[in-house]
Amino acid sequence: MPVESDAELAEILEYDHVAVVGCSSTPGKDAHDVPQYLLDHGYDVIPVNPYADEIFGRAAYDSLADVDEQVDVVDVFRPSEEVAGIVDEAIARDDVQVVWTQLGIKDDDAARRAEDAGLRVVQDKCIKVEHGRLRA
């Protein structure tokens, strides 16, 4: 069952290393402004975007599987139909604790697989909104 309680969301927001799959290099897009907000609030944001070389002055990785840094939370800014593959990559890693899909992004089957693999899942919520509500 995806995380819904404020207590669990607040606990998840204590993780430091957030890989943003679908991170955008274009200011004004949510996939840019939300990770920028996370950076501004002390998170280690790891951009994942195969069409960018660098975002926020950091190397952008082509896929979650390519990330060679620690990842606690995978924040997904990709269409719902791409979530299953991202979850597969998250499950294959030994460091991911949480898969978080942004507003409007949901895949219940992938969420169940992630939970069965021991990951916590947040679906259809904005990490910036939840941070502002619970931690700011």
Results as ranks from 00 to 15, higher is better:
L64Q: 09
K106N: 04
E4L: 08
D107R: 15
V73E: 08
D88Y: 12
D62W: 08
G42E: 14
G85N: 10
E14A: 02
D68Q: 00
L39G: 09
E11S: 15
S5K: 08
L38H: 15
V20K: 11
I55F: 11
P79R: 15
Q102M: 05
H17W: 03
K125P: 04
S5M: 04
G57R: 14
D62Y: 08
S63Q: 05
S24K: 10
A7M: 11
R113M: 02
M1H: 11
I127H: 00
P35M: 07
V122T: 13
D116G: 02
D16R: 12
K29F: 04
V67L: 09
A92T: 03
I46E: 04
A59W: 07
D62S: 07
V87E: 04
S63T: 15
V45K: 14
K29C: 06
F56L: 08
Y61K: 02
S24I: 07
A84G: 07
D6H: 08
R135L: 14
T26E: 09
V121P: 02
D53T: 15
P35V: 06
V87I: 05
V98L: 04
S25K: 14
I127K: 03
I86K: 13
K128L: 11
A117P: 10
R133P: 07
R93A: 04
C126D: 10
A114D: 07
Q70T: 12
Y43P: 07
C23T: 14
L13D: 04
A52S: 11
G85S: 10
L39R: 14
H41P: 03
D124M: 12
R135D: 12
A117T: 06
D33A: 10
V96T: 01
Y43T: 03
K106V: 14
L134C: 13
V87A: 12
A114Y: 07
H131F: 13
Y51A: 13
F77H: 02
D95R: 05
P50L: 06
D107W: 13
G22Q: 06
D72S: 05
V73F: 15
R113Y: 03
S25W: 13
V99Y: 02
Q36E: 08
G57Q: 10
G118Q: 06
K106S: 05
G104Q: 13
V48S: 01
D30I: 14
V98Q: 03
D6S: 07
V3S: 13
V45G: 01
S24L: 14
D62V: 15
Q70C: 09
V73W: 05
N49E: 15
D95Y: 00
C23M: 02
P2Q: 03
E54T: 02
G104N: 10
Q36K: 09
G22A: 08
Y15F: 14
D53Q: 13
A92H: 00
H41F: 01
G104E: 11
A65R: 15
V3F: 08
R135W: 06
C126Y: 05
V121Y: 01
H131T: 12
Y61R: 01
Q97Y: 04
V67A: 11
V73H: 09
D62L: 10
A7N: 13
D66Q: 11
E115G: 02
E14S: 04
G132M: 08
D66H: 09
Y37K: 00
Q70I: 10
V129F: 06
Y51T: 14
A19H: 06
M1W: 09
P27R: 05
S25C: 00
